[in-house]
Design a protein around this nucleic acid. Structure first.
Length: 300
DNA sequence: AAACAGGAGCCGG
DNA sequence: CCGGCTCCTGTT
């Protein structure tokens, strides 16, 4: 991949397998938002970046060479050859081939650990619009404001800030019973050495995550996968269960059977495989009770 | 209109 | 293994 830096922006030329919309809307992140000009605005580790899809190029505004090398290259997983990943996953698998063809530009982001931890604690037994609202509200109340042009964005709050809150004060974000989990997990997290976790195998990382309050198996797998600590994780929730039942009927019906099937079939690429499948299935309403009801139900 | 069900699960008994 | 949990939304 070739790229070059200019003053206040970095340009990727002739990018392969990188589509901003697919990457931001496949369900792995909650805070990127689309501007009226079609560009995407995000804040990561307190840095604001505006990403623009310009034909075969991608332009990152409000950043420069050192920032790009230090953060964004890793965040967008630019060191990975997604062409090779796709060839490997598609081999002898027509289902996966179709899922990849649906969103060939999807990339697995490597997101900030604490932000992902809290976001996926909030996600439990919840729906995406409300998850986004709660996460944004949390940032606005307890994160540092950063001004970018006419926008004000808020960095995700620091763990010690959330750890100092009472359940009472957190009521304002309307997270319900998850407020208690947010606070308790924030208090536990300083005891975790994230750099050390990065050197451990997925099973050990998972165990460490499961010790956090409000983190069960599904949330642990999401946190591990999206923070880059467990690239082979295969989070199974109600959606994935239904989707796998439809697309891979031989995978079984229990969570354990599905995970075992995924591990056997996708190996170390299970994480990215799940992302292709999940996005493909959700956008095409595969495995849902009312296939195709989206268009039909919109007419009163 | 008011009641009801269900949602990216997890905790405690 | 099971009831309960906050809050919100869509349905009846």
């Amino acid at each position: 991949m070739e790229w070059h830096a200019e003053k206040e922006r970095v340009i990727l030329r002739n990018v392969a397998q990188f589509d901003l919309q697919q990457t931001f809307e496949c369900g792995q992140c909650f805070r990127w938002r689309r501007l009226e000009n079609g560009n995407w605005l995000g804040i990561v580790r307190g840095r604001v970046v505006e990403a623009e899809q310009a034909g075969r190029d991608i332009i990152f505004h409000n950043t420069e060479r050192s920032d790009f090398v230090r953060m964004w290259h890793e965040y967008f997983d630019l060191g990975r050859d997604y062409g090779a990943v796709q060839r490997e996953l598609s081999r002898n698998d027509p289902v996966m081939k179709e899922a990849i063809a649906f969103a060939p530009g999807l990339r697995l982001l490597k997101q900030e650990f604490f932000e992902i931890l809290i976001s996926f604690i909030i996600s439990q037994n919840n729906n995406i619009p409300r998850i986004k609202r709660i996460v944004e509200c949390l940032a606005q109340n307890y994160g540092r404001p950063v001004v970018y042009r006419e926008h004000v964005l808020y960095a995700f709050p620091e763990a010690d800030v959330l750890a100092a809150l009472s359940e009472e004060s957190l009521r304002c974000i309307r997270a319900g019973y998850r407020a208690r989990y947010i606070i308790r997990a924030s208090r536990q997290v300083h005891a975790l050495d994230v750099d050390a976790l990065g050197k451990m195998d997925s099973g050990s990382v998972r165990q460490a995550l499961l010790a956090l309050h409000g983190v069960g198996e599904k949330v642990a797998d999401c946190v591990g996968l999206y923070s880059g600590l467990m690239p082979d994780a295969f989070p199974v929730d109600r959606w994935v269960r239904r989707v796998m039942e439809t697309l891979y009927p031989e995978s079984g019906t229990t969570n354990e059977a599905i995970v075992a099937f995924a591990r056997r079939k996708f190996g170390p690429l299970a994480g990215i495989a799940q992302q292709y499948l999940f996005y493909f299935a959700r956008e095409n309403r595969i495995g849902m009770d009312n296939p195709g009801s989206e268009a039909a139900s919109s007419t009163d």
